[in-house]
Design a protein around this nucleic acid. Structure first.
Length: 268
DNA sequence: AACCTGACCAACCGCGACCAG
DNA sequence: TCTGGTCGCGGTTGGTCAGGT
């Protein structure tokens, strides 16, 4: 069955709605409701097809329409629901009172899809980085693995540890160091949690010259971090790295040790 | 100032589902 | 069961505007 186009009938107007048309539609629906969309424009005195009236009312004129930008929570809801439901915009709209399926669809195509693609790209770069590190560790006999907590002698002096956080967009391997350097300049806006001093107090640093690195540390009591020193060489150089995963995103941190005296080779 | 380009979003279109006769 | 009318959904289009050249 071939259906005639909705507004093909002579005299029916198409295109953007005027404020006068809006007012006519609003006052008619407020007075009579919208029982029959097909009959509505004729009864209201509008030169529009019922379909056009319905769309205008649902997407723009309804009193409960929410205006303005989508909040972060709304965006997250859309992303989560889209992951579960796919392009079922009306079902997603049902989760967001005041938002229309059309609006959600537009936001998805213009903002969220791109945002998600960017996130996935970053995530895949991070995975590449992670694999390379694991391979390197496996080939080194003196490597500390995650399953065996590192325990080594530490020089008796003041010791401090500092970090620099890195948002990952590209990965470069340093020729001089047995480490991987992560660059961050390509990222525009990626949120990383702050590391406070309590992070480092998780390690056992008592009066004993022996320091035991636990298999995992904690950033802000929320993000588990593995032992940052992957090898004896890492420790000698006072350099290590660690990572955690938050909301599907890998974050990596460079870790540096500074001592007042030169660091001796730790005993494992 | 004029033109180009891309982002945004309102509106249109076609199709399937549903329902009544 | 079949047919035609209506509604709702999702894909797509096209107008507008802002920013760049």
């Amino acid at each position: 069955m071939v259906r005639a186009p909705c507004c093909e009938k002579m005299g029916l107007k198409k295109g953007p709605w005027t404020s006068e048309e809006d007012q006519i539609l609003i006052s008619y629906i407020q007075k009579n409701g919208h029982g029959n969309w097909r009959a509505l424009p004729k009864q209201a005195g509008l030169l529009r097809c019922g379909k056009s009236c319905r769309l205008r009312w649902i997407n723009y004129l309804r009193p409960d329409i929410k205006r303005g930008n989508f909040t972060k929570e709304e965006e997250e809801t859309i992303i989560n629901m889209h992951e579960k439901l796919g392009n079922r915009w009306s079902a997603i709209a049902a989760m967001l009172p005041g938002r229309t399926d059309n609006e959600i669809k537009n936001v998805w195509h213009t903002h969220l899809k791109k945002k998600l693609q960017k996130t996935e790209q970053i995530s895949s770069e991070t995975k590449k980085c992670s694999k390379r590190k694991i391979k390197r560790s496996d080939s080194n006999s003196s490597t500390i693995t995650q399953s065996e907590p590192a325990s080594f002698n530490f020089p008796e002096n003041e010791t401090s540890v500092s970090t620099s956080s890195s948002d990952i967009s590209s990965v470069e391997e340093s020729k001089n160091m047995d480490t991987i350097t992560v660059k961050s300049e390509d990222i525009e806006s990626l949120e990383t949690p702050e590391i406070d001093e309590s992070f480092w107090s998780e390690a056992t640093m008592d009066d004993s010259p022996t320091i035991t690195m636990p298999p995992s540390l904690t950033i802000s009591n929320e993000f588990p971090v593995q032992n940052p020193f992957q090898s004896v060489e890492n420790f000698q150089q006072g350099y290590g790295f660690s990572s955690f995963v938050d909301d599907g995103m890998d974050f990596w941190y460079d870790v540096f040790i500074r001592t007042e005296q030169s660091t001796e080779l730790p005993e494992f």
